[in-house]
Each structure stands twice: as C-alpha cells, then as structure tokens.
Simulated scan of single mutants.
Amino acid sequence: MNKVEKFKTMEKILREVEDLKNSQTAVIKKIGLIEAENMNLNDQELQKSLNVIYDGVHKNLQTVEGLFHTFSDSVATFKLKENITAEMLMDIKA
C-alpha cells in the first residue's frame, strides 16, 4: 500500500469512527426520549435499566470521541509528514 492509499484508508476509517460517534449520540438521544415518556409512567424498573444503558453508552461515546480526536491527529500528522497534496488524492481517483 503506497502512502496515498494508506492516507485514503485512514480517512475512510476516520469517517467510520465519526459515524460510530453519531450513532452513539443517537442512542443517547433515544434514551432521553424514552425517559421523557417514562415521566408519565414513572416505571422504576424502566428508569433503572435506562440509567444503566445510558451509563454504558455515555462511556462508549467518550471513548469513541477520544479515539476520533487521537486518530484525526494521526491522520493530519501523516498527511503533513508524507506531504500528501490534493493533486495526489485526485490522481488515485482516476
């Protein structure tokens, strides 16, 4: 794998990690919607379970966000170190 192909793969992975981050955020929002609905029911078991799920998803989201920032820095550093230009990226698409 040459450096341009490696960079493109890194960018693809970064987009997938960002998608994972967005998915985790969507799960947290969904939990909030269920909690709001449960305010009327006041089901304690449901609330307890939602709290456990929320804690796990929130921890995962923090981990994914950290990974995103760290890997994003790695991709940027690789791009600078390998002097990858827009022209080089266009050539691989052709």
Rank of each mutant, 00 (worst) to 15 (best):
Thr77Ile: 13
Lys48Val: 00
Glu87Cys: 00
Lys12Asp: 09
Glu65Ser: 13
Ile34Gln: 00
Asn22Phe: 01
Asn83Val: 05
Asn2Trp: 09
Phe71Ser: 10
Glu18Phe: 12
Gln62Arg: 09
Gln24Pro: 02
Ile28Trp: 01
Lys21Met: 08
Phe71Val: 10
Asn83Pro: 03
Met10Asp: 01
Leu50Glu: 03
Val52Ala: 05
Met88Phe: 08
Glu18Pro: 01
Leu46Gly: 03
Met39Asp: 11
Asp73Gln: 11
Val57Phe: 00
Ile31Leu: 04
Ala76Lys: 13
Gln24Ile: 02
Val27Lys: 02
Asp19Glu: 15
Ile34Ser: 07
Lys81Ile: 02
Leu80Pro: 00
Met10Leu: 02
Glu18Val: 12
Thr25Ala: 14
Asn42Cys: 07
Thr70Asp: 12
Phe71Tyr: 15
Phe78His: 04
Ile92Ala: 05
Thr25Asp: 09
Asn22Ala: 09
Ile53Asn: 11
Leu50Val: 03
Leu89Asp: 06
Asp55Ser: 11
Leu33Thr: 10
Glu11Asn: 14
Glu11Phe: 10
Met88Gln: 15
Lys29Asp: 14
Met90Gln: 13
Ser72Val: 00
Val52Arg: 06
Phe71Pro: 08
Val57Ser: 01
Met90Thr: 13
Ala86Gly: 00
Lys12Ile: 01
Glu11Ser: 12
Lys3Glu: 10
Leu33Asp: 15
Thr70Ala: 14
Phe78Tyr: 15
Gln62Phe: 04
